[in-house]
Amino acid sequence: MIEANAVYVIVAREFKKFVRERSRLVSTIARPLVWLFLVGGGMSRLVPTGRGVSYMQFIFPGILGMTILFSSIFSSISIIWDKEFGFMKEILVAPISRFSVVIGKAMSGMLLSTIQSVIILAFFPLLGLRIGPLEIIGIVFVCAVLAFALSSFGIVLASFYESYESFSVIMNFIVMPMFFLSGAMYPVKVMPPVLQYCTKVNPLTFGIDALKHLIFPLEKGPMSPDFPFVIDLLVIVAASVFFVTIGGKAFERKG
């Protein structure tokens, strides 16, 4: 059972705190821009791409994916903070189902990540990209679904950790490898076979691939998307359902 009021207020709380914390907003926007313009800009000169997309344009979907990855995981990890500072108890003794809590947290992550990715998306004209209004709607939709999947994944992670010391473990051993093994910085098809297997169990890969379809649909050659668009969509929807269910189960156990 899902209590609408409870879900609403959990999302409203996260949103309020997000808007209030300017430094968090600035840092989450700054990181992808640094990657995009400093790393992407520098590498563009090294990576010859012929007449197709430049390297900076190529990593744009990956940078959107990065924005979503970091902000979704960060949002869900706030569960660990809530546990540490006691606020989680207020939620856990309330007459609401555990699943409402999980849905509320996943939707908070989805909302905040989507807002941030839209801000990054607004930079596309600077990169010389042309994206139509229909594609933009598609991009926002893909970002939202991917954000829901990754936020739910974050909830599963958070349910395994007790204190915020584990934060750096999650960042270094889960989030960073997920980012590099997602086709964000280099196409999946140029990776060694072992790493290609890793990218295929990473939902972020398919989210970024879907964004590649929408951002440079005409691209041929090594920089083109790696999987069919339909597969990408199916995988991120399936990952959302899968992780939110596991997250619900992981939370339920704590009773």
Binding site: A6, F85, F87, E90
Partner: peptide, 21 residues
């Protein structure tokens, strides 16, 4: 304490009111 330190007193109470429907 199980209050949210980053919210105001009123917001903490409203949160509770919503949570308890």
């Amino acid at each position: 304490s199980s209050l949210d330190k980053d919210l105001t007193a009123r917001e903490n109470l409203l949160f509770h009111a919503y949570l308890y429907d």
